[in-house]
Nucleic acid binder design. Structure first.
Length: 579
RNA sequence: GGGGGCGUAGCUCAGGCGCGGAGAGCACUCGCUUGUCAGGCGAGAGGUCGCCGGUUCGAGUCCGGUCGUCCCCGCCA
C-alpha cells in the first residue's frame, strides 16, 4: 500500500475516470449527515472528497469522525462535477474524488488558531510555527525563497564561482557588531565567536587561488532585532580575484535578474543606476533612498544667503522639499514636530493652494527672487530646513521618507535598484573621538585618494558600494586592499598600532604579504532580498523559525539557563543580570 | 537605553464617558440534515478583561508600575 499516488491540487477534468489515492490534511469538512464533503489539502492544493454512505458505508462512518487538520488517506475515483456544482474558486473545482476507502491516518486536537484566519497574533504563529507553515502564505514564501536561492546558485555556478564552506566558529573581534560567543570545553575560559560574516575567510580563499568564491553563508550578530534584522541571517557572500568594481556589480546584478526571471517576473533593467553617496545624501538625505519616487531635496543656500528672513540668511545650509499636497495647519504642525524630532529647530514652509496662491508666515520676508525660485505647482507645499548641512540632510531625508509613506508616493509596481558608490573611506566617531572605517578596515581606497589617508581622512573616498532596492539596503561590498603598505596606513589612521593590528588580523596581514591578488566582493542580505521579492514587510515572514524582537524563540523557549554542571565544565560562572 | 502602538473566550474582535448580569463570529461538544464548498438548523460548554498595586460604595473601563509583543531611534565594521 502506498500512502498516495497523486497530489490533491493537480487533478483536472482530464483526470476523470482515474482511480487513485491521495493523502493530506482536512482543510474543511461539510457533514450533511448522509453525504460528507471533505476538502483535502496537500502542498499542491485542495481537492474535494465526496463520501456517500450508500456506496461507501465504512468510509462515511470514518468521515463523520473527521475534524479540521486530521490527516487522511482517500482512495476513489475522479468524477466530473455536475454543471451546477462546479467551484470556479478552486483549480480542481471541475472534479471531485468519489471516495471508496477512507483512512484516518492521524488525528488532530483542536488548533490554537484557525489556519484560515488572518491577523493571528504573530507570537502565537511562531509558538505553533508547524501549523503556521501549513498556511498558504508561508508555503508560498518558503517556496519563493527556495526558487530565488536556487536561481542564485545556478547563476553563480554558471559564472564560474566555487562554493566554499568557511567556519562559523571563529575569532572574536571587538569592532563592529557584538559577537555571539561559544565557550570551549577543551580550553575553559576561552571562546569562539560566531562569524559576523565570512569576510576574512573569503579574502583568504581568493588569496588562496580560488579565483571566484561564493557561499550562501549564515552570519550571526548580537544586535537588537528589527523588521529587517535577526540574530542569524544569510548572505550571498561573493569574492573575486583580479576584479574591478564593475566586475563585482555585474555578478550581483545577474543574480538579481536571475531571481526575478526564476519567479516569472519582469526583471529590473540592467545596468542598475550608480548613485554617488554624496549625491544620494544631497538629493535624498539618505544612503539608501527609495527611488520609486523623486521628491528630491533642492539646495537654496546660494539664493538665501542675503535673505530678509534671518533664519535663512544665517543658516550654513538651506534646502527644501516640494511635497505634492497643500498641507493644512494641523498637518504642518505635525510635520514640524517630526522635523524637530529629527533635529530641526523649526520647519519653515510655503503652502500653495489650489489656485497657486502662497500661504506662509515667512512669505513676507522673502524677496521676489526667492519666491520665484521656490515657486511650486498649485496644491503643493515647500518645506525648508535651515541648519548645519548634516542636520539639514537628516531632517529632509527623514521627512522625505515619511511623506512618501503618508502620501503613498512609491509606485508599488516599480522596482528601483541602485548602487550607491564612492562612499567616504572613514567617518568620524564621536564616541571614540577618532576616525573609524565606514565599511570595514580592508576596504580599498579610491585610486588617487591614498594621500588623503593621513592628510584629510574625512575627504578620502573608498571603493565601497551598497545595493539598494526600494529603500532597503540589500548589501554592501568593496574592492579590497591588496597592498600591505596601504593596509598598514589604514590601520594607523584608525588609531590602531601595528601590534594591535597584528594581534587582531595578523593572519590576513600575513596573507597580504604573500602574493595577494587584487580582489573585491560583495555580501547580499538574502533574507531581506527574499522578503522584498515576496512583498513581505519583515524577514520573519520568509524565515521558517525566526526569533521575536526580545531575542527569544517562542517555539523552543530558547534561550534558557544552563545547569551549573554544564557551565562549570566550560569554566563559566554567571553573575545574574548585568548592569 | 529611549519613544510609540497593542494585550477582553482557543482565535479574530466589540464593549471602552466608572453604572452594576462580560458579548459576537469562527473553532469546540451534542443532536438533526444526501450536493455542500465561509455548508445549514438547533442546543451547549468555554472568561484571572496580561499581571501587581492604587483611586472609588463600585474598575474590563481611571491612575501608577510591571510583563509580553509589534514598529521606530540608539545599535547593526
Amino acid at each position: 500500500m502506498s500512502w498516495r499516488d497523486t497530489c490533491c491540487g493537480e487533478l483536472r477534468r482530464d483526470d476523470v475516470g482515474r482511480r487513485l489515492t491521495v493523502a493530506g490534511w482536512v482543510d474543511t469538512r461539510r457533514d450533511h449527515g448522509g453525504l460528507v464533503f471533505v476538502d483535502l489539502r496537500d502542498h499542491t492544493g485542495v481537492l474535494q472528497l465526496v463520501v456517500n454512505p450508500e456506496t461507501a458505508r465504512e468510509a462515511a462512518e470514518a468521515a463523520h469522525q473527521v475534524r479540521n487538520e486530521f490527516v487522511l488517506r482517500a482512495e476513489g475515483e475522479v468524477v466530473a462535477r455536475a454543471d451546477e456544482n462546479l467551484n470556479p474558486n478552486l483549480p480542481t473545482g471541475a472534479v471531485e474524488l468519489r471516495v471508496e476507502r477512507l483512512a484516518v491516518v492521524s488525528r488532530s486536537e483542536p488548533l490554537p488558531f484557525q489556519l484560515d484566519e488572518e491577523g493571528v497574533d504573530e507570537t502565537l504563529r511562531l509558538r505553533y510555527r508547524w501549523l503556521d507553515l501549513r498556511r498558504e502564505r508561508m508555503q508560498r514564501n518558503l517556496r519563493l525563497s527556495h526558487t530565488a536561492i536556487a536561481a542564485i546558485r545556478r547563476t553563480m555556478d554558471e559564472l564560474g564561482f566555487v562554493e566554499v564552506w568557511t567556519p562559523s566558529m571563529t575569532k572574536g573581534t571587538p569592532e563592529g557588531a557584538r559577537d555571539f560567543l561559544v565557550p570551549v570545553r577543551l580550553q575553559p575560559g576561552r571562546f569562539f565567536a560566531l562569524a559576523q560574516s565570512p569576510q576574512l575567510f573569503k579574502q583568504l580563499c581568493v588569496i588562496g587561488g580560488i579565483d571566484r568564491y561564493y557561499q550562501i553563508a549564515t552570519c550571526w550578530r548580537d544586535e537588537d532585532l528589527r523588521a529587517d534584522r535577526q540574530f542569524e541571517f544569510r548572505q550571498l557572500d561573493v569574492e573575486l580575484a583580479f576584479a574591478e568594481r564593475e566586475d563585482v556589480l555585474e555578478v550581483l546584478e545577474r543574480c538579481v535578474v536571475a531571481s526575478f526571471e526564476a519567479l516569472g517576473r519582469e526583471p529590473p533593467p540592467r545596468p542598475f543606476a550608480r548613485l554617488p553617496y554624496r549625491e544620494a545624501m544631497l538629493r535624498y538625505g539618505s544612503d539608501k533612498p527609495d527611488l520609486r519616487f523623486d521628491l528630491a531635496i533642492e539646495d537654496a543656500t546660494e539664493v538665501t544667503r542675503g535673505s530678509g528672513f534671518g533664519v535663512f540668511a544665517n543658516a550654513p545650509a538651506v534646502r527644501y522639499l516640494t511635497a505634492p499636497q497643500a498641507f493644512s495647519r494641523s498637518e504642518l504642525e505635525r510635520l514640524e514636530r517630526d522635523a524637530k524630532e529629527l533635529g530641526a529647530k523649526g520647519l519653515a514652509y510655503l503652502v500653495y493652494d489650489e489656485e497657486g496662491q502662497v500661504r506662509s508666515p515667512i512669505a513676507k520676508f522673502l524677496s521676489e527672487e526667492e519666491l520665484a525660485r521656490f515657486g511650486a505647482e498649485p496644491a503643493s507645499t515647500v518645506l525648508f530646513a535651515a541648519d548645519r548641512p548634516d542636520v539639514v540632510v537628516r531632517v529632509l531625508g527623514g521627512l522625505r521618507a515619511q511623506l512618501a509613506k503618508e502620501l503613498d508616493l512609491a509606485d508599488r509596481r516599480r522596482d528601483a535598484f541602485a548602487w550607491i558608490v564612492d562612499f567616504p573611506l572613514f567617518e568620524w566617531s564621536e564616541e571614540h573621538g577618532r576616525w573609524t572605517f565606514s565599511h570595514h578596515p580592508f576596504t580599498g581606497v579610491r585610486p588617487g585618494d591614498e594621500e588623503w589617508i593621513e592628510s584629510d581622512p574625512g575627504g578620502a573616498l573608498s571603493e565601497a558600494y551598497d545595493l539598494v532596492w526600494n529603500g532597503w539596503e540589500l548589501g554592501s561590498g568593496s574592492i579590497r586592499i591588496h597592498d600591505q603598505d596601504v593596509q598598514r596606513r589604514i590601520f594607523a589612521a584608525l588609531g590602531m598600532g601595528e601590534e594591535e593590528a597584528e594581534e587582531k588580523f595578523g593572519f590576513l596581514l600575513e596573507a597580504l604579504r604573500m602574493g595577494a591578488p587584487p580582489h573585491g566582493g560583495f555580501a547580499l542580505g538574502i533574507d531581506r532580498f527574499v522578503a522584498l521579492l515576496a512583498g513581505e514587510p519583515n524577514i520573519r515572514e520568509v524565515t521558517a523559525f525566526p526569533k521575536v524582537a526580545s531575542g527569544s524563540d517562542p517555539l523552543t523557549g530558547a534561550p534558557t539557563a544552563m545547569p551549573d554542571a554544564v557551565l562549570r565544565e566550560l569554566g563559566i560562572s554567571t553573575i545574574g543580570q548585568p548592569q
